[in-house]
Write a protein that binds this DNA or RNA. Structure first.
Length: 618
DNA sequence: GGGGGCGAACTCG
DNA sequence: TTCCACGAGTTCGCCCCC
């Protein structure tokens, strides 16, 4: 039987979304059975369809890399062989074998805390989470193929007796803090990567107390168990990358030590599957395997020339360091938070009133979270997941730092308005580019850029494009800092005049913006309160957008959009029109305007552009 | 050509 | 009955401007 017909007979074999045996405690699981259940419960769903789309996209990327691979001449390969050898010499020179790193990983942390809280759960298959998603599964549950990041309804199918316990992060934070008290005694600068994992540099403890890494690990595990009642697993190695791999080897409640010895490291790494390495996930694993036949860390070195030929500098440096068993050995100094976000999933809806209400709730949560940490940010990103599971992000850089709910919501609303009509199942907001507290300044960070922007009258700036200049709050986007206005010699009013014009007016002209509707032939469908009428059968009387017959869904959503707008008592509509127009362009054969080469079209860029070198210098 | 801004994708727990 | 999360970091490619 060839592989094709085999795939057709057992389609679940090629569906890898929710199952991997890489997780500790799942070694004896009947992989095929689990895959089949997951497949049967998923197929036909919108989620499944989206996964199929994603897999097709990845497959295309792989085929493209394979073509690039096939085109390489002997001369090319010899060239990249030299580059690879040089890189390997440099990386080898950076090798550090004098440090002792520990990676600690609490065993099934959330589940273990719940069992500690309720001992009657001990020994039973337990999942922390709900029907939509599981955070952690106990080892008893893992025997059935149940694991973290699996939807609860599938987990219950795999294990009908599965007990669900809702998450309680206050509890987990409390126990996490108990573990951290222990960590501090061994390394005051330990690196916590989550509530249940941390890296400790125990080099000093080892030398000061004359202990080996193995002895420190055993002592630390004992202290954790005594002070929390929980078990953990520990890996000891000369760097963090290796320590992380080691902590997974004797899970649960165990430890593994890799000696600080070049030979020991190279032996350990030689047969190690690349998927065990942090940073190499499903996609990278498939790409390396299907294009270059790389499955182990040693294969990375054997194929070093091709790795350098097909991947970017950063990627190939990383892949080669994996092959050499190199990883972080120094504690990074600045570990400041770089972003803060919040997102919510809900029953999919295209009702703008509901969507804006969700957005307001999320803005309030984000603002509250920011104020707890005294954070002020100037880059706001709106994340959307459509009802078909497609994820989109839309960002705006602001002219001042903000943190209040009102300011966040104003800007987020502008971003969301530009996407309507749309049916969503998730909305998220993320703030980044935080104000540097050390500078104690409120001065606009982009003032130089803005000055130049105003002088040149440039139309480039999505920040302005997406902002409702005519709204009451518009002044807030512009500089409150009077110094800048004086510096520019330009009044705020003038700022508004200059910045409000770009693109939108010309785009409206191209759209055939018709506020002077001639006659009315048809009212919009679906909403009795909607005042929209379709002039000549296809032109919106409100805004002039053209939606021909056959776009009934789009018409209803467009009507909803105007309704929501009146509810919101907002004024600006231009950006939204532009977006709707772009959508129409993609769906209508009668596109009147050449598609603007913008990030809107980015999803249509050649697939080979991703993850590969843009240019080859031979 | 370099840098900033943006959007998408990948990864991890 | 329930029907695929959330938060954070990183990298890459593209566009635009200088």
């Amino acid at each position: 039987m060839d592989s094709k017909s085999e795939g057709e007979d057992r389609p679940w074999q090629s569906y890898h979304t929710a199952y991997t045996n890489a997780k500790a405690g799942m070694e004896g699981v009947d992989k095929e059975k689990v895959q089949k259940v997951v497949y049967e419960m998923s197929k036909g769903s919108k989620y499944f369809e989206n996964e199929q789309r994603k897999e097709a996209y990845i497959k295309q990327k792989i085929e493209n890399l394979q073509q690039q691979h096939a085109k390489l001449t002997d001369k090319d390969i010899a060239h990249f062989q030299k580059i690879a050898e040089k890189k390997i010499v440099e990386l080898e020179a950076s090798r550090e074998l004098t440090k002792t790193w520990l990676h600690t990983d609490m065993d099934a942390f959330y589940a273990a805390v719940e069992i500690l809280d309720n001992p009657s759960l001990k020994g039973k298959p337990l999942a922390v989470g709900g029907m939509s998603m599981i955070c952690t599964a106990s080892y008893e549950a893992r025997k059935f193929g149940v694991r973290a990041a699996m939807p609860g309804f599938i987990a219950r199918k795999l294990c009908p007796h599965l007990i669900f316990v809702p998450t309680n992060f206050d509890k987990y934070t409390h126990f996490s803090e108990l573990t951290r008290k222990v960590f501090r005694r061994y390394d005051p600068n330990f690196i916590a990567t989550s509530l249940d994992e941390a890296y400790l540099n125990v080099t000093d403890v080892c030398s000061e107390r004359g202990l080996s890494g193995e002895e420190v690990a055993a002592e630390l595990r004992g202290a954790i168990c005594d002070e929390t009642g929980l078990t953990c697993s520990v890996g000891v190695a000369p760097n963090r990358m290796l320590a992380k791999v080691c902590s997974d080897i004797n899970k649960p409640n165990g430890q593994f030590i890799l000696l600080n010895d070049h030979g020991a490291v190279m032996t350990f790494i030689s047969s190690l599957p690349i998927r065990k390495i942090g940073g190499i996930g499903k996609v990278t694993e498939h790409m390396l395997r299907d294009v270059l036949g790389i499955t182990t860390c040693d294969d990375m070195l054997k194929n070093s020339a091709l790795v350098c030929a097909l991947f970017s500098d950063l990627s190939s440096d990383f892949f080669l360091s994996v092959g050499l068993g190199l990883g972080g050995t120094h504690t990074p100094e600045n570990r400041m938070r770089k972003s803060i976000s919040t997102e919510r999933t809900f029953t999919a809806t295209s009702d703008p009133t509901l969507l804006f209400q969700k957005l307001a709730d999320i803005a309030e949560t984000l603002s509250s979270d920011m104020q707890k940490e005294n954070l002020w940010g100037r880059n706001l990103t709106l994340k959307l997941k459509t009802s078909s599971f497609e994820v989109k992000t839309r960002a705006v850089s602001l002219q001042k730092y903000i943190s209040s709910k009102e300011e966040i919501l104003t800007n987020a609303t502008n971003l969301l308005k530009a996407e309507l009509p749309v049916s969503l199942r998730l909305i998220g907001l993320r703030m980044s580019q935080f104000r540097d507290e050390d500078k104690h300044t409120l001065v606009d960070p982009t003032q130089k850029t803005l000055s130049e922007f105003i002088v040149s009258g440039s139309s480039h700036s999505k920040a302005y494009e997406n902002q409702d200049i005519s709204s009451e709050n518009s002044g807030d986007y512009l500089l409150e800092d009077k110094n800048l206005c004086e510096f520019d010699g330009t009044s705020e009013k003038e700022h508004r005049c200059i910045t409000s014009e770009p693109e939108s007016s010309s785009k409206r002209e191209e759209l055939g913006d018709s506020s002077s509707a001639k006659d009315t032939n048809e009212t919009c469908g679906g909403n009795a309160n909607c005042e929209i009428q379709w002039v000549d059968g296809y032109i919106c009387s409100k805004c002039g957008i053209e939606l021909p017959l056959g776009f009934e869904e789009e018409r209803r959503e467009h009507a909803d959009y105007h309704l929501a707008q009146s509810l919101q008592q907002e004024e600006s509509v231009h950006v939204a029109h532009d977006r709707v127009y772009h959508k129409l362009e993609h769906s209508s054969p009668k596109s009147r305007k050449k598609q603007k080469a913008s990030s809107q079209g980015a999803k249509f860029i050649p697939i080979d552009a991703f993850f590969t070198k843009g240019k080859k210098t031979l």
